[in-house]
Structures are given as C-alpha cells and as structure tokens.
C-alpha cells in the first residue's frame, strides 16, 4: 500500500487507531498547541523539549527529570521525528535531552508529530533512517502502539513501557 501525500494523515490515523492510539490534530497558528497538550496530559508529567521554535511544552511538564520524577510520572511528552502511515508507527529519536526515558517510563506516552512528517511506508522510512544514521550515527525507536506482552497468559497492554499512547499532530 502506498498512500498519496494528502491522505497520509488519514492513513496514519486509521492504522494508529487499530493499536488504540488516539490522535488530536491542532493548527499551530491558533496558538492552541500548549492548551491541547495540557488537556491530553495526566499529571504528573515529564518530557523532553520540543524541537520546533513555534511550539513548546506546557509549564506543567517537567523537562530534564530526575530518576524519581521519571518513575513517578503518569505522562511522558516527547516529539516524534516522523511517522509511517502504512503501519501507524512513529519514530522516536533517542536524544541527549532524555526523550527516550521520558517516552518509556510513564504509563501514558504523548507524542507530538508535525503532520508534514508522515512518510507513506517502510521503504521510505528506511531510506530516511539510512541517510540519517550514516550522517549522525543516532538511535531511534520505531514505536507502534503501547508496550504489550502475551507472556502472562493473555495479551496485556502496558508491559515494561507505556500502556497508553496519544498523539498530538500539529499543522502549519
């Protein structure tokens, strides 16, 4: 399945929904991104700074958390580098400001995705990652839905990682 650019969001949203991932779409120009995030977040919250100049985290989100704050947080807010429409997946970069632990320890992971950063399929995903890894030798997680296990006799969402995932998708 290869999806045309204008339909990428819809395809992504549909696939993400199959994993129980809800999306909230918000236009940056309305200035409502922080407000939207504040609504989605359950306190206490930790996170890593967002990489866009015109979007920032609500003050209630603790960045640069301590280990204690990490384990006590209910929500972790981090940016997604990009998303894969065909699979409903997001790419979460492991950055020096602690995005990886913030997206991993809390029960609820809220990712923030720029709607322009959705690629159609895995081929496009690995082309992009190949260029990126060769250039900067970085690390990332391809995350699809919440963490899960079937090792305890039935499928359970929420194993070592988050049990819920919510996406805030921004438009410009």
């Amino acid at each position: 399945m290869t999806v045309a650019q204008p339909d990428l969001y819809d395809a992504f949203a549909e696939e993400a929904a199959t994993y129980g991932v809800e999306l909230t779409r918000v236009d940056v120009s309305t200035g409502a991104v922080r407000e939207t995030l504040a609504e989605v977040i359950e306190q206490p919250a930790v996170g890593a700074p967002l990489p866009w100049e015109d979007v920032s985290l609500p003050a209630s989100v603790t960045t640069e958390p301590t280990p204690a704050e990490l384990t006590e947080a209910t929500t972790g807010v981090t940016a997604a580098s990009f998303a894969v429409a065909e699979y409903g997946s997001v790419i979460l970069a492991a950055t020096p400001d602690g995005s990886e632990p913030a997206s991993l320890f809390p029960d609820l992971h809220v990712f923030v995705l720029d709607a322009a950063d959705i690629v159609p399929d895995m081929r496009a995903t690995f082309e992009r990652l190949g260029d990126q890894f060769r250039a900067d030798r970085s690390s990332a997680i391809l995350a699809t839905g919440p963490s899960a296990t079937a090792d305890m006799g039935a499928l359970v969402q929420g194993a070592h990682g988050p049990e819920r995932v919510h996406g805030v998708v921004i438009d410009r």
């Binding site: 699979y87 890894f133 690390s139 699809t144 963490s147 899960a148």
Partner: peptide
Amino acid sequence: DLTSYLSL
C-alpha cells in the same frame, strides 16, 4: 504486522 518496538 509489527511488534510494539523496533529499537534501532
């Protein structure tokens, strides 16, 4: 289709 996490 995919497992939850592919760590790269």
